[in-house]
């Protein structure tokens, strides 16, 4: 038993601008798909469509099969700028998405405590966001997503507001969480290294309007990507993908310059 996330022929236009055109991809349960492409290729639009924040001009997104029974919010975002309420404590932020659900006080507290424990935030439950570093803030964002037990995580450049070292640490955190429990997700990034390290498959989008250029499986299982033996294969993938992205990005730049 499992589920599939099917994105079928999704197109979207803003007023005059076509942002996405005929994007189709299917994710299996437990799979992480990275989406990469030049800026303005509609990566975030795609995520917005999947998460129900943007109504696509055409196409559909559906979950086929059985989703986890205790999920409160099947598609859950992790935001680039964390999107924490600065007036709420860590626990208050993590508990926010539970407040409009009918849950007993006990269960609510237990879920929050569990999410905090899984992200190593238990001792910071009462801290305000302003007291935390950027990396810790994003861990609050991750805890807030875990608390609703989503079927699909929608990660919108979750590390790009962080410095390089913090990014490394958080990638480890993500990997830990994903290793412990089967996680399905779409991981939007502009960082190719991040995509290759985190994803099972990488989808490259063409420049505006965003279309699928290619979808490539990362040839090494996630747990083994740090091993020296894996480096050759990963570097080859990096080269291949980068060649495509560079081409798209250059063309996109020229088109922007031409207006």
């Amino acid at each position: 038993m499992g589920f599939e996330l099917a994105i079928a022929n999704v197109s979207h236009s803003y007023a005059k601008m076509r942002a996405l055109e005929d994007v189709s991809v299917t994710l299996n349960e437990g799979e992480i798909l990275a989406v990469i492409g030049p800026s303005g290729c509609g990566k975030s639009t795609l995520l917005g469509v999947v998460g129900g924040l943007i109504a696509p001009s055409s196409g559909s997104v559906s979950l086929l099969g059985e989703t986890p029974p205790d999920t409160l919010n099947p598609y859950t975002f992790i935001f680039q700028d964390f999107a924490l309420l600065p007036w709420r404590s860590v626990a208050g932020n993590v508990g926010l998405p539970l407040e409009h659900h009918r849950l007993g006080v006990g269960e609510r507290k237990a879920r929050v405590a569990d999410a905090l424990a899984r992200t190593g935030l238990s001792e910071f439950a009462d801290a305000l966001p302003k007291q935390l570093s950027g990396g810790m803030r994003q861990r609050v964002g991750i805890a807030r997503a875990l608390v609703v037990k989503p079927a699909v995580f929608l990660m919108d450049e979750p590390l790009s507001a962080l410095d390089a070292q913090t990014r490394e640490l958080l990638m480890d955190d993500f990997e830990d969480i994903w290793r412990r429990e089967k996680t399905t997700g779409i991981y939007v990034t502009h960082n190719l290294d991040e995509a290759i390290r985190m994803a099972d498959r990488v989808m490259v989008l063409r420049r505006r309007p965003g279309r699928v250029r290619e979808i490539v499986a990362v040839p090494v299982p996630r747990g083994e990507r740090r091993k020296p033996a894996a480096q050759g294969a990963l570097r080859a993938l990096h080269e291949e993908l980068w060649a495509n992205i560079r081409e798209e990005a250059k063309l996109a730049d020229r088109e922007v310059a031409r207006g």
Binding site: G51, G52, L53, N73, Y75, T76, F77, F79, D81, A83, L85, W87, L96, P97, E99, H100, V148, L154
Partner: peptide
Amino acid sequence: ARTLIRMGQSFNMPFHHIAFKIVAPG
């Protein structure tokens, strides 16, 4: 911040929750 409202919507928070828990304190 627009992203805070989007965050509320992404968790399917009802309108009055977004208005009183996100917009009002903001």
